[in-house]
């Protein structure tokens, strides 16, 4: 191997790690250079949703299941952490940890019977669970504040250093998001991840190859619920206010739309899907009355022409073009 080949091989071998490092570096230096409060607000939201969608993509994209109810776990994390720190007087960090644990416990209880279901039945069951959680948040107003929401949540803090400003929050939420990203990237290349991909391909064949399909599905469901609850807790302490509107079934549908637009089973695609669908409402705000039509049209356009997702689809397209070009000039 020449020096150049060795260099390129090193890049190829460590492409994932290098991309994660580059992303980390970019995120670390971007706020002091360009960050204004508005932009930071948007990117913080992207980080929070990315945590949810990374987990959801493991469940939908890799394991081939469907959930239209992940906003419920987002809600359990947010309200759980907010109420534990606000009403029970637990410190925010402990409240966050307990809320994630509790939401995972709920996911386990709901997941064991629900994951026996397939396809549309699973979609309905998760949707139903989301509706129940949403309605309870709306109606139990003595505790949750009902439709007007729950305000005055303490920020997370390290000693006197409170994660209250957009800038400080940026480092906290992106730190967690990058940890989750690394976890997801490693998980899908481990034996567990291969087992999940096998379940998505063919459940019976996966079982025949020795994958405990029921346990695998429940585990990844609980993991994705824990991701969602973690994001929810960070949301609550980061913004200091939660209201049921953020956690309705439309939020769940949006999460799945982010997974589908980014590409089923593509971890990097998830990040992209989140970024696109979070920025979109900001961009198309100026078309006020056409907002919904444009939103729908983009979803329809992507799914119609690049059904494998925007990132995977464009990469495939580029590969085909390149191969054709090479064939013509060979």
């Amino acid at each position: 191997m020449t020096r150049r080949e060795r260099f390129l091989y090193f890049f190829y071998l460590h492409r994932t790690g290098l991309t994660v490092s580059a992303l980390t570096l970019a995120l670390a230096v971007y706020p002091p250079l360009w960050g204004n409060p508005y932009l930071l607000g948007v990117t913080n939201q992207i980080a929070l949703y990315a945590i949810v969608v990374l987990g959801l993509n493991l469940f939908i994209g890799y394991a081939g299941q469907i959930s239209l109810g992940h906003a419920a776990f987002f809600a359990l994390g947010a309200y759980g952490s907010a109420l534990l720190s606000g009403e029970a007087g637990v410190t925010p960090w402990l409240a966050l940890a307990l809320a994630v644990l509790a939401a995972s416990g709920v996911a386990l209880l709901v997941g064991i019977p629900t994951l026996r279901l397939h396809g549309h039945y699973l979609a309905m069951a998760t949707l139903g669970f989301n509706l129940v959680v949403y309605l309870v948040l709306m109606q139990w107003d003595k505790m949750t504040g009902g439709p007007s929401g729950y305000a005055g949540i303490q920020p997370l803090a390290l000693g006197d250093f409170a994660f209250a400003s957009d800038l400080r929050l940026h480092y906290l939420v992106w730190g967690v998001a990058l940890l989750c990203l690394t976890l997801a990237l490693n998980l899908v290349r481990s034996g567990v991840g291969r087992g999940l991909a096998a379940v998505a391909g063919d459940e019976v064949a996966a079982a025949a190859c020795g994958v405990d399909t029921r346990a695998a599905k429940v585990k990844v469901f609980v993991l994705s619920a824990a991701f969602a609850a973690l994001a929810g807790g960070l949301y609550a302490h980061g913004f200091g206010f939660v209201s049921p509107e953020t956690f309705g079934i439309f939020a769940s549908v949006d999460f799945v739309a982010m997974v589908v637009v980014g590409g089923l089973g593509s971890v990097w695609g998830s990040l992209f899907g989140v970024a696109l669908l979070t920025c979109l409402p900001e961009w198309i705000d100026r078309f006020e009355s056409y907002k919904e039509i444009v939103h729908g049209a983009i979803l329809v356009g992507v799914l119609m022409f690049l059904p494998q997702g925007l990132v995977t689809g464009l990469v495939d397209l580029a590969r085909v073009r390149l191969a054709r070009w090479k064939a013509r000039h060979a």
């Binding site: 799945v256 589908v260 729908g296 979803l299 329809v300």
Partner: peptide, 16 residues
């Protein structure tokens, strides 16, 4: 799943 989300996109458009 792609088809379901296609119908969701169409539904958002129609509502708009």
């Amino acid at each position: 799943l792609v088809l379901i989300f296609l119908t969701i996109g169409l539904s958002i458009m129609l509502r708009g």
